[in-house]
Design a protein around this nucleic acid. Structure first.
Lengths: 144, 144
DNA sequence: TTACCTGTAACTATAATAATTACATTCGAT
DNA sequence: ATCGAATGTAATTATTATAGTTACAGGTAA
């Protein structure tokens, strides 16, 4: 299992908006860069818009960031594109046998451990901003 | 998306082996406690055996831990049941457009960030042992 | 030999992802 | 006011992973 590539695509979209400033960015343009169908991009634009990360308007080409890139973390993107639900990175089998010592308690024992692991992962994401990503990309461009 | 419940079931199986000592544990018995099909359990027993966590022999009922419970971490179980591949908790869209600044560099920029997040999650799992889980379950039993 | 166990192949149902087609809606330019 | 181009979104399909199930081969002890 892997977390949906929507997350990476979301980061791609936001980075491109920031890097390609001055260019009018449409869903078709983004689809070309990401190499997918424009509808996939538009669906994601809807999610990023709903999360308050971008500004888009029907009928008008041109997407803009709704915040400065240093104020957008990868965790914001991760939540926006809905790849992992809160407390549900790990799943626990339902209906273990309640007459069994282990079956009765396994869920409540394991759940906080799973949540702690998920939070540790999410904390790393929240410590990286879109600006960090964009700067890394631009540093690679400068080398060539 | 969620990580397969195989992980939670694996923890359940190992905990039960440790808690229900003295009882002869078969795949049917485990299936009853987990509330699933015995074949699902046997498949998992194969994985846990292959990872060196349990000892099972064909034809003989009775599963044993291959190590002391304080030497088995949740990370060991996680690797054994093969729920997430190394470096692949997150997936990245393939074939972004190479003529585009962002498309050309997004993968190499994002990958180390994703790996760092995954490692942080896995580190939490490696700091919890089967003994911790078993003691937590037994402390709950003692309260009733 | 019998009964019971593990080991495993094969098939099915379900759910999530991603891609795609089709079309309604919105807006600016002419 | 209309046309063209964009976004917004419903519906369909292909692919993949999970989980459950049936069936049966092979091992072991009584």
């Amino acid at each position: 299992m892997s977390i949906s590539s929507r997350f990476a695509v979301g980061i791609h979209i936001l980075s491109l908006i920031n890097v390609d400033q001055g260019v009018t960015i449409s869903s078709d343009y983004l689809a070309g860069s990401v190499n997918t169908n424009p509808v996939v991009i538009r669906r994601m634009m809807g999610m990023l818009k709903k999360a308050g990360l971008i500004e888009v308007r029907p009928g008008i080409a041109g997407i803009k960031l709704a915040k400065e890139p240093e104020l957008i973390t990868l965790f914001d993107v991760y939540k926006a594109v809905d790849v992992v639900q809160e407390k549900e990175l790990f799943s626990i089998h339902e209906n273990p046998h309640p007459d069994c010592t282990v079956g009765k308690h396994i869920q409540s024992t394991v759940e906080p451990l799973f949540i702690a692991a998920q939070l540790a992962m999410e904390k790393v994401l929240s410590n990286v901003t879109l600006l960090d990503v964009v700067e890394d990309i631009e540093s690679k461009v400068a080398l060539t």
